[in-house]
Simulated assay, not measured.
Amino acid sequence: MALAAALALALGLGVAACGSSSSGSGGPINLVAYSTPETVYDKSLIPAFQKTSPGNGATFKSSFGPSGDQQRAVIAGQPADYVHLSTGPDMKALVDAGLVDSNWDQNTYHGIVQDSVVTFVVRKGNPKNIQTWDDLVKSGVEIVTPNVFSSGGAKWNLLAAYGAQLKEGKSPTQALAFLKTLLEHAVVQPGSAGDALTAFTSGKGDVLLSYESDAIEAKAAGEAVDYVVPHDTILIETPAATTTGAPTQAQDFLKFLWTPQAQQLWANGGYRPVNQSVLAKNKDKFPVPPGLFNVASLGGWDKVNTEFFDPETGSVAKIESDLGVSTG
């Protein structure tokens, strides 16, 4: 009986440890994030944290990829101490799995470490004069956007398109019809926002739907692109949290990301700070689109994720299936 009890205890501990590293072991902080912020983490935020007193001696093991794939990997057992995902539903999946505390967003910034907006990335000089959402569906225009069933960025892109139609006075039925036309213009739908950017800069398509931060980073890297922030677009809010049982240094890293120093590093990397004083210092770089809206104005993530993106019953799933695009 004692042996059976010991075995049961060991198995229970093993299950509880799934998705997080062994806290207090002195090992690296396991950082798992969506694809887009890889550069700003590796080249700016992590080195800056390591120079602070709480970050002294910290090392990191990082993983970047499509947000949906990342949350599924963590649930399957990939070590994670700090997670930064693209969408609320991806974080909710970790909460539901017991890997992130349910109060993860109970702070001043509601668990959001930076913002962005959906933009149109175009060829240098904008040869097709793409300025509005209607321009995207003109004859001959080819679009690059990621696959919504792996990429959080793709969900933001389609919600931006849908919400923009509502802002223009269209009905929900008309807005959904616009999404269908938009996706019919998609020449390729890569697995992540990062892969979509690579496809575009390699020559695919006339316009890329993307995070503003990707557009800024691509221009800074010397890519032959410009970008347009449409009049009506969505505020992208990406959630971050530490996992249950994460080491103290991982928790300190999350706190560091909200400091004015780190918020300015986010801004330098093309992301909109959530610290309002830092955002104000960067207002010329990040003008507010006149028709900016958020996911809450569309009913919130619970509603839109079910209505649009459920792989079996979602309206976008039906559109993509009819177009022969994978929804798995």
Rank of each mutant, 00 (worst) to 15 (best):
E223I: 01
L45M: 09
N126Y: 07
K204H: 09
A220V: 00
G65I: 08
S35C: 05
L11Y: 03
K51N: 12
Q114N: 13
F309V: 09
A5S: 13
M1H: 13
F149R: 13
D90A: 15
A246I: 05
G203C: 07
T244M: 04
V325G: 07
E38P: 09
F309C: 04
D135E: 00
I46S: 11
Q114D: 08
E142H: 01
S20A: 11
D284N: 15
V15Y: 13
Q189R: 09
R72D: 11
F256Q: 03
Q174F: 02
I46Y: 12
R272T: 02
D90L: 07
A160P: 07
S116R: 07
K92G: 04
A267Q: 09
S151V: 05
G299Y: 03
D134C: 02
V117G: 09
P54F: 03
D232Y: 12
V40K: 10
S151K: 12
P247F: 04
K180A: 10
Q165P: 00
V229M: 14
T119V: 15
Q249I: 14
L265W: 12
K180H: 03
L298F: 01
K51C: 04
T39N: 14
T39A: 15
S63W: 03
D232C: 08
V137K: 00
S53R: 12
G269S: 14
T243Y: 05
Q251E: 08
V40Y: 03
V188L: 13
G194Q: 11
N103F: 00
A267W: 07
I130Y: 00
A221H: 08
V188K: 09
L298Q: 03
W156Y: 15
L323E: 06
P47R: 13
G57A: 08
V32K: 13
A241G: 07
G77H: 04
T108A: 14
S25G: 11
G169H: 04
T59F: 06
G222A: 06
R72S: 14
T108V: 01
S44G: 06
F293P: 10
Y162W: 04
A246D: 03
W301M: 06
H185G: 06
V100R: 07
V316Y: 09
P28D: 10
A58N: 06
K281S: 14
V100M: 05
L235H: 12
S210R: 05
A186V: 01
V74Q: 05
V15S: 12
S44E: 12
K155D: 03
Q189D: 00
Q50N: 08
K128Q: 02
V207F: 02
D252Q: 14
L31I: 12
L99P: 00
A193G: 15
P172G: 11
A193Q: 10
L94S: 04
F120D: 06
T87M: 11
Q249S: 13
V288C: 02
G55R: 10
